[in-house]
Write a protein that binds this DNA or RNA. Sequence first.
DNA 1: GCGACAG
DNA 2: ATCTTGTCGC
Length: 227
Amino acid sequence: MEPRVKHSWKLTEEEAVQLQQELARQVIAEDHLADVQYIAGVDVAYSKHSGKLIAAVVILEADSLKVAESVVVEDHVQFPYIPGLFSFRELPPVIQAFQQIKTPPQLIVCDGQGLAHPRRFGLASHLGVLFNMPAIGCGKTRLLGEFEEPGLDRGAMSSLMDRGEVIGSAVRTQDGIKPIFVSVGHKISLATACDWILKLAPHYRLPETTRQADQLVNRVLGGADHV
DNA sequence: GCGACAG
DNA sequence: ATCTTGTCGC
């Protein structure tokens, strides 16, 4: 797979913000999905020495939720962690991993936010726009926005609001566990995004896409660091 | 100035 | 995210 849009990653904080504002205009918050047969999960882990990072892309078969393919890429941190500019830190190796994927997915699930971002352009939207592909933002915690506590049953959800807009949903994926934050990345509606996340999280708090990618990066990190 | 702040 | 053991609770 090759990204449809390419741009420099060597940017100043100001340039990164400006780029987000430009690319954010391309985000589509409506369903533009083909038949979803394969779904990509993305995650990144950092070495404790905080020098390198491991990015993984896993492809799950939509019906069985089994891993069909996976790619891991190691890279070096080139951008600091700045809330709101997260994608400039993690996407470079993630994109390299996608370029090695041989089983094209029809949907991407990211560990982070999509439209639930100060400039409505979180990691999931960034990745979705670059590959011109449907993407969902799924974070363990919130970047911004206010929300009411969802009902305690699996499937319960409430709106994540910011500046008078619905920017995402707090979704309870299991009875009585903390909700996760789902938002539109690209080419998908919030309702459809929530539906998919619930399908992808039948037994755990996080969707299988994120869990599988997370396990993979940590396995690689542990095996390379446990020398 | 004081908090909040995806991973 | 990462540094880290045991421990309180279902």
